[in-house]
Amino acid sequence: MQIFVKTLTGKTITLEVEPSDTIENVKAKIQDKEGIPPDQQRLIFAGKQLEDGRTLSDYNIQKESTSHLVLR
């Protein structure tokens, strides 16, 4: 499924993911596309910070959901 990640600069990154993917996996995909190390990434969805060990389905992130990327 596709999800979108919006950066603070207003850029939207499109990612191909599975509901069973962990947040860690998603951060690795963002690193592949954008070159941002996962330890600098914070992903926010529905006002919550997403934890590495959880999956997209844990957070009820469905296709075409948009989460926000904040850099630390």
Rank of each mutant, 00 (worst) to 15 (best):
E24F: 14
V17R: 00
G10R: 03
D39S: 12
T7M: 15
M1K: 03
Q40F: 08
T12R: 07
V17T: 03
E18T: 14
D39M: 08
E16R: 09
T66H: 14
E16T: 13
I30S: 00
E51T: 06
R42C: 14
I36G: 02
I44P: 00
H68L: 15
V26L: 10
K11I: 09
K29C: 03
E51L: 09
S67Q: 10
K48D: 06
F45M: 06
R54C: 10
L56N: 00
T7K: 04
T55F: 06
Y59P: 01
D58P: 00
R54Y: 13
S57F: 09
L69K: 02
Q31P: 01
K11C: 08
V70S: 07
G10A: 03
V70F: 14
S65H: 08
A46Y: 09
P19F: 07
E18G: 08
D32V: 13
F4C: 06
Q49V: 15
I44A: 05
I23M: 03
G53Y: 11
A46Q: 15
T9G: 12
N60P: 03
I13L: 09
D39V: 09
E24K: 11
H68E: 10
R54S: 07
Q40Y: 07
K63C: 07
P38V: 15
E34D: 06
S67Y: 13
K63L: 11
G35L: 04
H68K: 07
L15P: 00
V5I: 14
G47P: 01
K63W: 12
L71S: 06
D58W: 11
S57R: 12
K27F: 03
K33F: 08
D32P: 02
S65A: 09
Q31S: 11
T7F: 15
Q62I: 12
F4G: 04
N60H: 10
D58I: 03
T9P: 04
D32Y: 11
I36V: 07
D32L: 14
E18Y: 14
T55S: 08
Q62F: 14
F4V: 10
T7P: 03
I36E: 02
D58L: 03
I13T: 02
Y59E: 02
F45C: 04
E16G: 05
I3M: 05
I61S: 01
Q40V: 10
L71I: 10
T9Q: 11
E51Q: 10
K48T: 13
I3Y: 02
D39G: 10
K29P: 00
L56D: 01
K48Y: 09
A28T: 10
R54M: 13
K33Q: 12
R42F: 14
G47T: 04
K6R: 12
I3V: 06
D32M: 13
F4D: 05
L71H: 06
K6E: 09
P38C: 09
E34S: 12
V70A: 06
Q2D: 05
Q2I: 15
L8H: 14
V70L: 13
G35V: 02
I3F: 05
S57L: 12
S20Y: 11
I61D: 02
T22D: 03
G47N: 06
L50Q: 01
D58R: 02
A28V: 12
K63S: 14
M1P: 02
R42Q: 14
A46E: 15
D32G: 09
K29T: 03
A46V: 06
S20W: 13
Y59N: 02
L8G: 11
A46G: 12
E34I: 15
